[in-house]
């Protein structure tokens, strides 16, 4: 009997360290619990809804970034693409050139996909390193966003009915806000695609071993190109989404937030050298970042120190990730020894 107790303990420990997602989930729960103790209103349903809605853009783009990172690439042009698409749609509404909400989203997504295609073509077919192509794209699309804006903003009044989309919940049967429904939908689609389709598996294959993937008959260039198109499409779509959520289109929208998206993925255990990472991980990573952003003003940390605290928490979570991974590997080794 005495011998069984340590074994039981071990199995619980194994359970925690067996999967990265579980350990991340634990981090998230502990984080929420700590914040909940300091400010009880944090864990109300309306507050959670606000967190999801306010971070939907980052969460959705994290999916595209997941795919890009899985192929071993990186895309830092996404927020510029977002601004370009969002600004264009904002201007179209402002000058009453379009009125339909659906059309707005469609145009934004199309612009995004086009931007993604340009970068993707340079990377997949032109042999340009992803960071260079993305950096060029970052300058070009942000510049275009400013040119489209022509020193104008589109405010709530100019956007008219387009802003109602983020307020109503007709897609969620009157219970869940539209923006959250869309976010969930994106996650479900990506979960299915990455887990159970040929395309999804070829993305993983390219990231793990490009040569092997090519030999086994995967059109490496085509898949890579498509990944950037999808990333662009999501970024463009988020441009329109961001305009409806904040009822405002400005050319410097989400400047510098591409790093948040990448950070969300990496916190979620997605490898930056490609081949490993899951939709669940990206979700948890994005959620952890969102919770931090929401909690910092709530728990009463001095405004001037909030950025430092944010940086320290990100670093701590990332390092914690590595430490658990090392423990995981060690315990796996030990198990094999037995």
């Amino acid at each position: 009997m005495n011998e069984q107790t340590p074994e039981k303990k071990k199995s619980l420990w194994n359970c925690i360290t067996a999967s990265r997602e579980v350990s991340l989930l634990l981090v998230l729960i502990v984080l929420c619990a700590l914040i909940g103790i300091r400010s009880p209103e944090f864990l109300t349903i309306s507050n959670i809804g606000e967190i999801l809605k306010n971070n939907a853009v980052i969460m959705i783009m994290a999916l595209g970034m997941l795919c890009v990172l899985l192929t071993g690439g990186i895309d830092i042009s996404i927020t510029s693409t977002l601004a370009f698409a969002g600004m264009t749609v904002g201007m179209l509404f402002k000058y009453k050139l379009i009125q339909s909400t659906g059309l707005g989203f469609l145009i934004a997504a199309a612009i995004g996909a086009m931007c993604g295609a340009i970068i993707g073509a340079a990377i997949a077919y032109g042999g340009v390193a992803s960071i260079i192509a993305a950096m060029g794209g970052m300058y070009i699309f942000r510049g275009l966003a400013y040119l489209v804006a022509n020193s104008q903003w589109a405010g709530a009044d100019a956007l008219g009915s387009f802003t109602n989309f983020a307020l109503s919940s007709n897609l969620g049967f009157g219970v869940i806000n539209n923006v959250i429904v869309i976010t969930i939908l994106c996650y479900v689609i990506f979960f299915i695609v990455l887990k159970w389709t040929k395309f999804g598996r070829s993305i993983y294959a390219i990231g793990s071993n490009r040569t092997a993937a090519a030999i086994s008959g995967i059109h490496v260039a085509r898949v890579e190109f498509l990944v950037y198109v999808i990333m662009g499409l999501l970024a463009g779509f988020c441009g329109a989404l961001s305009v409806t959520i904040y009822s405002s289109a400005q050319p410097n929208m989400v400047l510098g937030k591409e790093m948040d998206v990448i950070a969300a993925c990496v916190i979620g255990g997605v490898s930056m050298s490609g081949g490993s990472g899951t939709v669940g991980g990206a979700l948890l990573g994005a959620l952890i970042l969102s919770v931090i952003a929401k909690a910092l003003p709530l728990v009463g940390i001095d405004a001037i120190a909030q950025n430092t605290v944010k940086g320290v928490i990100i670093l701590a979570v990332v390092i914690l990730n590595v430490v658990t991974k090392r423990m995981m590997d060690r315990s796996n080794l030990e198990r094999r020894k037995l």
């Binding site: 990448i262 990496v266 001037i304 430092t308 944010k310 990332v318």
Partner: peptide, 30 residues
């Protein structure tokens, strides 16, 4: 950090230190 935790990508580590260094400067500047 990068040599102790060699698994970590430089981008994410320097991203967090970027936020931290600028954050410390903000605190000093008041």
């Amino acid at each position: 950090i990068l040599t102790v935790f060699t698994e970590l990508p430089a981008m994410i580590v320097t991203l967090s230190t970027m936020i931290i260094y600028r954050g410390i400067a903000e605190i000093i500047l008041g």
